[in-house]
């Protein structure tokens, strides 16, 4: 199969980016209204219950929250067009700076968790598909059950109790060294593995039953070639989709894991923003998150194309 011409890839990406603009616009308007419908007054929350109404009103004025809603919206949109996500009410600093300060930590945790999950779940899923009624098959079922049913909060606290408090092998919380990454990444990976094992097993099983495998086998190809080159390659598509979506979800911040392990990522920032009704910060994080999801979906689609020639043809020719 020939590699696609470079221009068409660029055009394809450009088209996808343009398609994303109306989606983003709708999201921004929706978010802007939604956060303001939430009960709670950021000025009162800043000042505290014990503050006088006069002091709270002053804060409202300083923050511009006393202006009519449409004026606030126009201010916000004109800022956005200049690439300005606004100023956090709580931190009194640019929203984008606050997000970018946390994003590397979120990225670190997400990638580590996803790598561990892939390294364990895919082999486990493949093996259990190849040998469904063995101990490995049973192990795969158990892992996927644990992963999808264990409350992550509880798992995190248990791991801290065993590895930090009792064995004193790993730090209980915070960041800094690779050792700090182990417990949160393993916790998050357990959650991811549940899905990943099941999807891998199912898609490998499906591939093994398809006609081209029967053909390959009947041609007398070696089993390794059949499994690796034919079955696995075809089974990879749903696995990549799930992995990509998981990664996308994780990049928005894993709120529970981050909270248990005091991991200073986007999830904790979003939680703080919601609890203080920090409108610009909530909006900023959601927009950032939406952009990431759009980019990841694009990357997934391009990845399909490199794995599956059929997708490649349909993607590029339909442009």
């Amino acid at each position: 199969m020939e590699a696609p011409p470079k221009m068409s890839l660029a055009r394809y990406i450009a088209r996808r980016v343009l398609q994303a603009i109306p989606t983003l616009l709708i999201l921004i308007v929706f978010m802007f209204i939604l956060v303001r419908i939430l009960p709670g007054d950021p000025a009162r929350l800043i000042a505290g219950l014990e503050a006088t109404e006069e002091d709270v009103e002053r804060i409202r004025e300083v923050l511009g929250l006393n202006k009519p809603l449409h004026e606030q919206f126009i201010d916000y949109m004109s800022g956005l067009l200049r690439g300005d996500l606004g100023t956090s009410i709580k931190y009194d600093r640019p929203v984008l700076e606050e997000i970018l300060a946390r994003f590397p930590k979120t990225l670190e945790l997400a990638i580590a968790a996803e790598l561990i999950a892939i390294a364990l779940a895919i082999p486990l899923g493949v093996v259990s598909a190849l040998k469904p009624y063995t101990k490995t098959g049973l192990l795969a079922t158990i892992v996927s059950l644990i992963g999808s049913s264990m409350p992550i909060y509880w798992l995190g606290l248990m791991l801290i109790y065993i590895f930090s408090v009792q064995l004193r092998l790993l730090p209980s919380s915070g960041t800094g060294t690779l050792a700090h990454l182990v417990l949160p990444a393993v916790t998050l990976a357990t959650l991811l593995m549940g899905n990943l094992v099941r999807i891998t097993r199912a898609s490998v099983l499906e591939a093994l039953e398809s006609n081209y495998i029967v053909t390959a086998r009947s041609k007398g190809l070696r089993e390794e070639v059949v499994v690796y080159r034919h079955a696995l390659r075809n089974a990879l598509i749903p696995i990549i989709t799930i992995t990509g979506l998981q990664l996308g979800a994780l990049l928005g911040g894993a709120i529970l894991t981050e909270t248990v392990f005091a991991w200073p990522g986007l999830g904790q920032l979003l939680l703080t923003a919601i609890n203080s009704r920090d409108y610009p910060l909530i909006q900023g994080i959601i927009i950032f998150y939406a952009v990431i999801l759009i980019v990841i979906n694009l990357v997934i689609d391009i990845a399909y194309a490199y794995i599956d020639p059929r997708v490649r043809v349909s993607l590029w020719s339909s442009g």
Partner: peptide
């Protein structure tokens, strides 16, 4: 000053000597 939002983790961090 280490920011640890979860009360149970603050306690664990103390018990673990962190």
């Amino acid at each position: 000053w280490k920011i640890i939002k979860e009360a149970g983790t603050r306690e664990s961090a103390l018990l673990a000597g962190d």
